[in-house]
């Protein structure tokens, strides 16, 4: 699983479940050291605009970041918001992945399926607002 997918699943997941998973990994007697305690920081959003195909800054978001090491492997997490506990658990999960000791990929995939389902159900509500145009007068429709 690539990092983007991993962090997308974790960012969208319920905080309690992520924290629980983080604790489980910690209990599996891996030596975990917090290198950088969770802290809030800013991230500037860089965007491309379509008129001149150039870049500009849309504004900032608040993210929380943390770094840990586990069995000599480093794990990082950066995620939107200010949830310190969740971010720390995300860093532990990342470290476990990097150390090759993460055994819960199937669980993450199950979370992901549920997340997609919810997004697609919401999308179904949006799609009901799609307009089906019918021209009422052939002369003005051209």
């Amino acid at each position: 699983m690539n990092k983007k997918r991993l962090f997308q699943i974790l960012a969208r997941a319920d905080r309690e479940e992520v924290i629980q998973l983080g604790n489980k990994i910690k209990q599996e007697c891996h030596s975990v050291t917090v290198v950088k305690q969770p802290e809030k920081t800013l991230t500037m959003i860089k965007m491309r605009e379509p008129v001149k195909n150039s870049l500009f800054y849309l504004g900032e978001i608040i993210v929380t970041e943390a770094t840990v090491t586990m069995d000599g492997s480093t794990g990082v997490a950066v995620t939107m918001g200010d949830d310190f506990d969740k971010t720390l658990s995300m860093a532990m999960i990342d470290a476990a992945c990097n150390a090759g000791v993460f055994h819960y990929e199937e669980l993450l995939i199950a979370w992901e399926s549920e997340q997609h389902l919810q997004i697609e159900k919401e999308n179904a509500m949006m799609q009901k607002t799609k307009v089906d145009f019918h021209s009422m007068d052939s002369e003005v429709s051209t």
């Binding site: 800013l42 959003i45 860089k46 950066v78």
Partner: peptide, 21 residues
């Protein structure tokens, strides 16, 4: 905002791939 440091810049955000509502 002025009390926080800025540590990151995002990759270029692609609005073509937006989840449209």
């Amino acid at each position: 905002r002025s009390t926080l440091k800025r540590s990151h810049y995002t990759n270029i955000a692609d609005t073509k791939a937006m989840r449209i509502i």
